[in-house]
Design a binder for these strands. Structure first.
Lengths: 327, 327
DNA sequence: CTGAAAGCGCTTACAG
DNA sequence: CTGAAAGCGCTTACAG
């Protein structure tokens, strides 16, 4: 249908090889005159390079693959933005596939698609891979990296926040403001992230010689509803005077339910949330947050994926406390 | 590096053609025995099909391309979710490219990447293409469709809401609640969407024999900040008693600034917003919205892209008013 | 049921 | 500076 290199060659009276070289801007292989002629004809023929053919013959692709969770956390947007920005800088395309948070079969399907495509690298965003899929990924020889997911073992290359520090600093912030009874809400403690944050929380409490009640910690999956439910469990007369929300949305759930109960924030209940997306700024009172550097996770992750020498190194992106109206 | 069809053929003692047929599940071309043997060897060799080669020879790809705005509106998430869901149903991959809202060069780059890849179809989400890029897209012969963008001419295939109706119904809702002075905030009237909504707004006002002041309409680009600024212009003693926000975020901007002024919502000022994403439900008071069917835009758009007979038809997805606490 | 052969559109040593 | 030729990994009429 569309024009090929051969059509151009014919029209220009040169070989396909020369056309290929001109179009790929290989230096020193042709005269200025040929180049101009070839380029002009290419344009006039509406020529578009066939990427499949190029990838087949060069055996490498200009694509990086991203696997993200279908039940998207609202922070993944920023990570993806970062990935795209960095990809564009390198002239790469991004192919994105959704996979369920805990659906090994969907994960496998997504992985295979990327492997068949022989992508340049694979970024796994906020998803914990099933063991067999991790093995599949590793067997593929394709460079990969986890973003915003850390594993128990540090052997897997990742870019994420230091979740222990997140838990610790959030708690510390509250303790400094005089709170002794601090709740922790909507964290999934079956995963490494949740465990680390709880560990950080406990460390800060113990260091301040504060005791911890088991039911100050309400588990969840980081959702808005988990926040609401947790606050309902605390009730109208919560024992705690401050709460750490596992995500901005969870914290907003806590906030709304607290307001529903007529509890004043921050006067009667302080709230700090983890993530620091724009949501924290559009609610009232605005939420104090432990802000993560999501955009940087995306850019840095992409860079390190492309850098052969860095392939196995894991790294933390910085976090910071942003004090607003809720503490 | 990795195993090819030839390696399998050799190991199985059959031809590459047979392997190809088995692996593609072509019926009636081989004995059950051969098939099982070939499949087993394929697995043991960690065989992964080379998509480039397949696409090159079959001259069609299993990929659909999506171009979205880099300055993402928060509703595009839902559209993209819909696209992915439908793509997975059809065994297709999705390649996503960001392009600036008004950067013709980035648009062209994104388009060319997709065209070179000979994708099966192109979905343009919430972006207005520059004329020359539209021409490029059309010349490519690749099926395409605009999502959540309607053009002046109805000649371009799109899936979107009826923006005239959005403007009309939002206004109508307010009028029914006794409002006579109604503001319209953060709409970009340089685009078709904004123009249609304003037209719907005016029609409803005129039909109710209400007059319209020019400065009840505050332009903007649908952002949170536009909402805040608009409310600042209305001031502490706004002439209007109700405001239509061009997006959920814009409406939240209005809401927050109004609360800042000590204006009570909805008692002193009613607010209705357009979009109806989850944001409307997590703020207090919850926002009444004209809710758009974004997820359906994604699924329907993808379906129609794949359906040859429907390629030129444009369609509206339904809208509905969801009454909450702000009106 | 199976295979030999041609070909998809491109790149790149190799030889001039 | 330029071209002929081989080859990337697969699919698919065609002939048996």
């Amino acid at each position: 249908m569309s024009a090929t290199i051969k059509d151009i060659a014919e029209a220009a009276g040169v070989s396909a090889a020369t056309v290929s070289r001109v179009l790929a801007n290989k230096e020193g292989f042709y005269s200025q005159a040929t180049a101009t002629r070839v380029r002009k004809i290419a344009v006039s023929l509406d020529y578009e390079k066939n990427t499949s053919a190029v990838e087949l013959v060069t055996r490498k692709s200009r694509v990086i693959g991203v696997i993200i969770s279908a039940t998207k956390t609202n922070f993944s947007d920023k990570i993806i933005e970062g990935i795209h920005a960095e990809a564009i800088r390198h002239g790469l395309s991004v192919i994105m596939l959704y996979a369920g948070q805990n659906d090994p079969q969907l994960q496998e399907q997504a992985l295979r698609t990327l492997i068949e495509r022989a992508v340049k690298g694979i970024l796994v965003v906020a998803i914990q891979l099933a063991d067999e899929n991790l093995a599949l990924l590793q067997a593929s020889q394709i460079p990969y990296r986890f973003l915003s997911t850390s594993y128990n073992s540090n052997k897997l290359p990742s870019i994420a926040s230091d979740d222990y520090q997140i838990g610790y600093q959030a708690t510390q912030h509250l303790i400094e403001r005089g709170h002794h009874k601090i709740g922790l809400v909507a964290m999934d403690t079956s995963g490494h992230i949740g465990q680390q944050r709880v560990a950080g929380y406990k460390a800060a409490m113990i260091q301040a010689a504060l005791s911890i009640e088991d039911d100050w910690i309400k588990e969840g999956m980081y959702t808005y509803e988990d926040g609401v439910r947790a606050m309902q469990t605390f009730g109208r007369q919560p024992e705690v005077t401050a709460i750490i929300g596992a995500s901005d949305l969870a914290a907003i759930g806590v906030l709304n339910q607290a307001m529903q109960y007529g509890i004043q924030v921050p006067k009667q209940l302080a709230i700090i949330s983890i993530d620091g997306t724009y949501l924290a700024r559009i609610v009232r009172p605005q939420l104090t947050t432990v802000t993560q550097a999501f955009y940087e996770m995306g850019t840095l992750g992409t860079q390190m994926l492309l850098d052969q020498t860095q392939q196995t190194v894991s790294q933390f992106t910085p976090i910071k406390i942003e004090t607003r109206q809720s503490t």
